Amino acid sequence: RRVERCVALSDVVKASDEDLEWLYPGQEPERVAERWLATGPAVVLVTRGGDGALAVLPGGRVTVDALPTEVVDTVGAGDAFMSGTLHALAAHGLLGADGRERLRSLDRARTADVLRHAAASAAVTVARAGANPPDVAELATALARS
């Protein structure tokens, strides 16, 4: 119930498929994300490791594949995914009080771009030891590969 209260108060929610399996054993992560979306967020993001990521928004679902990467260390992958998400949302003018209404009307194309940035950030991070997210140049290189 505490998690669901936090979800309802949030604009952007991110969870991994493993998080959702732990919270809701036996339930499909996509269905949980849809339920969470109905409580108030503008978008719910679900990371799926090597299977990519999913965004659930009022206009439907958007998915992206994970970037092919040799995994060295998964520590920091979720944080890097979220930092890539925030970086892309900011680039689209979707953060802060003045971006909130635009965030609530997030379209599929911008959502896919946000997910690509997030997945690329996570891919760079897991390709090296330690929780070491990419800088802007490394992110641009990873995005060029996607």
Results as ranks from 00 to 15, higher is better:
Asp73Cys: 09
Gly78Met: 09
Ala97Met: 00
Arg116Ser: 14
Arg104Leu: 02
Leu95Thr: 13
Gly78Lys: 09
Gly59Ala: 15
Met82Tyr: 14
Asp79Ala: 02
Ala97Pro: 13
Arg108Pro: 08
Asp107Glu: 02
Gly49Ser: 15
Val64Ala: 06
Ala53Asn: 04
Arg108Lys: 15
Ala97Lys: 11
Phe81Thr: 01
Asp79Ser: 06
Ser105Ile: 00
Ala77Arg: 09
Leu86Met: 12
Arg100Pro: 05
Gly96Pro: 12
Ala90Gln: 13
Ala53Asp: 04
Leu94Lys: 11
Thr63Phe: 07
Asp51Cys: 10
Val75Ala: 11
His117Trp: 14
Arg61Gln: 14
Ala80Thr: 05
Phe81Ala: 01
Glu101Ser: 12
Arg102Asn: 03
Val75Glu: 02
Gly99Cys: 06
Phe81Ile: 03
Arg108Ile: 01
Thr69Cys: 02
Arg102Phe: 00
Leu95Ala: 00
Thr85Arg: 08
Arg100Tyr: 01
Thr69Asp: 03
Leu86Tyr: 12
Pro58Val: 04
Thr74Asp: 00
Ser105Cys: 08
Arg104Gln: 11
Leu115Asn: 07
Thr63Pro: 01
Pro58Glu: 10
Ala80Glu: 04
His87Arg: 13
Gly96Phe: 12
Met82Glu: 02
Gly99Glu: 09
Leu103Arg: 08
Thr111Leu: 03
Asp65Gly: 14
Leu115Trp: 11
Thr111Ala: 14
Leu89Glu: 01
Asp113Asn: 03
Leu57Arg: 14
Gly96Val: 03
Leu54Gln: 11
Val72Pro: 04
Leu106Trp: 10
Ala112Cys: 08
Asp98Gly: 04
Ser83Met: 09
Arg104Met: 00
Gly52Gln: 03
Gly60Cys: 07
Gly78Trp: 07
Asp113His: 01
Leu95Lys: 03
Gly76Ala: 08
Asp51Gln: 15
Gly60Arg: 06
Leu57His: 14
His92Val: 00
Pro58Ser: 08
Ala97Trp: 12
